[in-house]
Amino acid sequence: MSDNTKIFHWKSDRTLPTYLASVAAGPYALVTDTVNAEQGEIPVTYYVRPSDTTRARGSFVNLPAVTGIFEESFGPYPFQRIGITGTSLGAMEHAENIFYPNSSINGTLSDEWLYAHELSHMWFGNKVTCASDADMWLNEGWARWCETLYRENLYGIESARENMRPLLREVLQFIHTKEGGYRPLSPMPSEYTYGDNVYDKGGVTTHALRGYLGDSLFFGGVKHIWIRLPTALLLPTTCAMP
């Protein structure tokens, strides 16, 4: 505009849970890519610090493969764009626009697990989200487990086991000392919504559910349900039983 104000319009034709809408402002540089997905070619945008453009290509070199692993496991990517936006702190799975720590855009694969976690939320948390924060394990537990699933498919079963073992040990040995005793995953008190039970016990439990059902029933059931659910459905745990 004449006063140097820039107006950006953004529209998604997919329904989003309101807590997943996001805006980031800063002197970003844009790196683009595409992923050949089940719905066709999906644009990928990396909004990063200008000094991080080369690092972004190195850190996210496996993002198309990870997307493919999740599509194969859970059904088509549920949104229109894959977005990664560098931020100063933390990671958050905003729909189509993952906020991702600048420190993890370092040109290496050291924090690959982190964007795998956030990307998996597009299926678990964004397309379908928990009806109440008491059921947060449906979002975070499944995303934690997806950190193991992508390793299994990208690097092999032993890599997956090496990821799951310390998680399991942490859960069995220490989790009750951190969160006031042994807790059910659901309903989880609000002070522990983002606690270790939700993430780590949730991840181990998801892994156990897969083992309990066997791969054909587990993946077949999840895919069958997730493809048919409308986007932004609110799901209680009792409805998540395949």
Binding site: L89, S104, L114, E140, E162
Partner: peptide, 14 residues
């Protein structure tokens, strides 16, 4: 007993 312990980055994730 499995004794393998992998380090995890101290990153806040949601």
């Amino acid at each position: 007993f499995s004794s393998l312990m992998l380090p995890r980055s101290p990153i806040l994730l949601l």
